[in-house]
């Protein structure tokens, strides 16, 4: 069920003076079950890119394949694609509309034409998966906190049982605690359900601890693509495009240049701690 992008180009407002390329020659292969971080600045094309993956946007040129089929073929069933490739948008306010949370989560499976029982079962499961408390089930989604709203929004997509889950900046506007909760939740979903997850963010610190692969977008192009350690080793280039490597990388680089025998590959706090302890133990 891999997603393959073949030389995808996308131009906004074509034929006007405002025309600009949002995606330039993007080639990617995202295999099944991978946890991918998609990083880039505001306007780097990352949101546009993910909207191509479930057919919301159509490339100006190039092809997007899902499960070996071109999703922009005229006879391709886009509705079933959107059930398989679930996309959670940045602001939950853009999708919550029902009178209570449970009904809202039912919206997705209902659109798939499932029987009522199945719909409710899926909604219940999804809300449980995102760690949503039973007591809020029948509350209006508009009375919830930012973090809880986001959970309902994620559940709303999870209820369609997607094979790929894409989250567009799921941590935007959350406080540090809420941010960590959501990221842990996403990581848990990946481990328990084994689905492919694409996490869009502009913060390296957000994704460094969790993902297996990082794709860096810059001005519509894929700038870097690889394992976190590999991408962070280009921290000087990342800085040049206005993205910083995780703070840990800087600490490790500084330590190394100060003469300590640490491995600069450490990207998470945990790894860094071990490295530093090891280095000092040897002193």
């Amino acid at each position: 069920m891999a997603i393959i992008l073949d030389h995808v180009n996308y131009i906004y407002d074509e034929d006007t003076a405002m025309a600009h390329a949002a995606l330039i020659d993007v080639c990617l292969n995202i295999p099944d079950g991978q946890f991918v971080g998609l990083i880039g600045h505001t306007g780097s094309g990352k949101s546009t890119l993910v909207q191509h993956l479930n057919g919301l946007e159509k490339p100006t040129s190039g092809c997007v394949f899902y499960d070996g089929k071109d999703i922009n073929d005229s006879d391709y069933d886009k509705k079933s694609l959107r059930a398989k490739v679930g996309l959670v948008f940045q602001y939950p306010e853009h999708q919550l509309f029902e009178t209570d949370c449970f009904k809202d989560v039912c919206f997705g499976p209902k659109n798939l034409g499932l029987p009522q029982k199945e719909i409710e079962l899926r909604a219940y499961e999804a809300l449980k998966q995102v760690g949503f408390d039973d007591e809020y089930f029948y509350q209006s989604p508009f009375d919830l906190s930012g973090g809880q709203k986001r959970r309902v929004a994620i559940a709303g997509v999870l209820a369609m049982k997607p094979e790929v889950l894409i989250l567009d900046e799921p941590t935007a506007g959350l406080d540090p605690k809420g941010r960590e909760d959501i990221l842990n939740l996403i990581s848990k979903l990946h481990q328990e359900m084994g689905i492919t997850i694409i996490l869009v963010s502009h913060s390296m610190d957000d994704v460094a601890d969790y993902v297996q692969r990082i794709i860096v977008m810059n001005k519509g192009r894929v700038a870097f693509d690889g394992a976190p350690k590999e991408v962070f080793s280009h921290y000087k280039e990342l800085e040049a495009i206005g993205l910083a490597a995780p703070q840990v990388t800087y600490v490790m680089q500084e330590l190394k240049s100060a003469g300590f025998a640490v491995n600069t590959d450490a990207t998470t706090l945990e790894e860094a701690k071990n490295e530093i302890l090891k280095a000092f133990g040897k002193c």
């Binding site: 909207q51 479930n54 919301l56 509705k79 959107r82 059930a83 679930g86 996309l87 959670v88 948008f89 602001y91 853009h94 999708q95 919206f107 997705g108 659109n111 798939l112 709303g156 997509v157 369609m160």
Partner: peptide
Amino acid sequence: EETDKIMKAQMARGAD
């Protein structure tokens, strides 16, 4: 613009 975004968010949930 907002309408466009909301439409997309709901289409992602299978709205037609």
